[in-house]
Amino acid sequence: MANIAIQRIKREFKEVIKSDEAQKCAINVELVGDDYRELRGEIAGPPDTPYEGATFQLEIKVPETYPFNPPKVKFVTKIWHPNISSVTGAICLDILKDQWAAAMTLRTVLLSLQALLAAAEPDDPQDAVVAKQFKENHSLFLQTAQYWSHVHAGVPKGNSEFAKKVRCLQDMGVGEHQALVALSSCNWDVDRAIEQLFS
């Protein structure tokens, strides 16, 4: 990897570790391997959102041309959010694409992602199903996102009614995550979810 990329990532790594946000456990980075090519990021779900209390793991890949091109970031932890694919974890955020600027760092990227969790942009969606629910049935979206945080991102409490519906599908031999996806995208209508799963 180009020298400037390694130098910078090393500095940024220290910057994140020492930052105030890291002290408050809002963001964190860890090394994956020892060549600074790939990192594991972590952000806490922002307060007053359905992601509150959750911890999300991110995969950060540093390209050869860093910092002139953005790092490749995606969610490893499954999340229900209009701008993040519920299937792949791919993120739709302009600063990770054409609005990248060389002065941005790991720290600002992680904070931007945290801000994205608090302020979704349903008109520029990555996951159309989530965005549709966000716009048309916002309260259900909030409950769904909270339930995903419970199932995947370590939030202790979850909606018991949703849990019952998931278990109902699991009894039919459907995997837990598969059941969760089907129910979430069918607005928790069990009959429609079954239809979608078995057609």
């Binding site: 701008n83 739709c92 955020l93 302009d94 002065a103 931007s112 801000a115 994205l116 942009e121 520029d124």
Partner: peptide, 11 residues
């Protein structure tokens, strides 16, 4: 998407 966090000290 327009969420950008810039350095605080950068005017």
């Amino acid at each position: 998407m327009t969420v950008v966090v810039l350095e605080e000290d950068s005017t």
